[in-house]
């Protein structure tokens, strides 16, 4: 069992209610004892040491903390860990095995779809949700699907190209640089 905080100050333990939860994280069954108010993002980062999920705004606006819960993109900074009990969570660390890259990861690198890298895990998870549902999205569909994820560095144009690159690769097609015209 993973406990979120290794040590609880005497006194605090009696005051703070806790609950045991079990979550499938990147295909692995993991349990933790958590406060009901603990955000899923914090469980993933501090509890499970999966620091690829970032928090940037605490209000569901920026999308840096986007993970997939049962395949759907969720802002993990405003979902409680207890709400994930019994559900399936995928983070950026689950996109590919240790020595592999998911097509989206390759696409983001190939098309220069990232600069500081802070929004990137959330961007890729939101993109994955899109491609799982719509394997060959148009530029508008990509822009709409990613409109809950803020990036301050790139201006999005290369992110759109990165998703197109990945869609093309997943489709078995060639991976020449995508043309984005607007």
């Amino acid at each position: 069992m993973t406990s979120l905080f290794q040590e609880i100050t005497p006194g605090a333990a009696q005051e703070i209610p806790v609950r045991e939860i079990t979550v499938m994280v990147n295909g692995e069954r993991r349990s933790a004892v958590v406060e009901p108010r603990l955000a899923l993002a914090h469980l993933l980062r501090q509890g499970f040491k999966l620091t690829g999920t970032h928090t940037g705004c605490d209000t569901s606006n920026c999308g840096a903390c986007t993970v997939l819960v049962d395949g759907r993109p969720v802002k993990s900074c405003t979902m409680f860990a207890v709400q994930a009990d019994g559900h399936d969570v995928m983070t950026v660390e689950g996109l590919a095995g240790p020595s592999e890259l998911h097509a989206l990861q390759e696409g983001f690198k190939e098309e220069h779809g990232l600069q500081c890298g802070f929004c990137t895990p959330g961007m890729m998870m939101a993109s994955k949700a899109l491609l799982d549902e719509n394997p060959s999205p148009t530029e508008d569909e990509i822009r709409w699907a990613l409109s809950g994820n803020l990036c301050r560095c790139t201006g999005y144009q290369n992110i759109v190209k990165a998703v197109m690159w990945a869609a093309s690769k997943l489709d078995g097609g060639d991976t020449e640089p995508a043309e984005v015209d607007s």
Binding site: R45, Q46, K49, L50, T51, G52, T53, H54, T55, T91, V92, E93, A96, L101, Q105, E106, F108, K109, E110, H112, L114, G117, F118, T120, P121, M124
Partner: peptide
């Protein structure tokens, strides 16, 4: 040239201040 730093960022293996424990 494709970026060297991307190799860690695309894997969620960047090392930002809040990642350090």
């Amino acid at each position: 040239r494709r970026r060297v730093e991307d190799n860690r960022f695309i894997r969620g293996k960047g090392n930002y201040v809040d990642d350090i424990v």
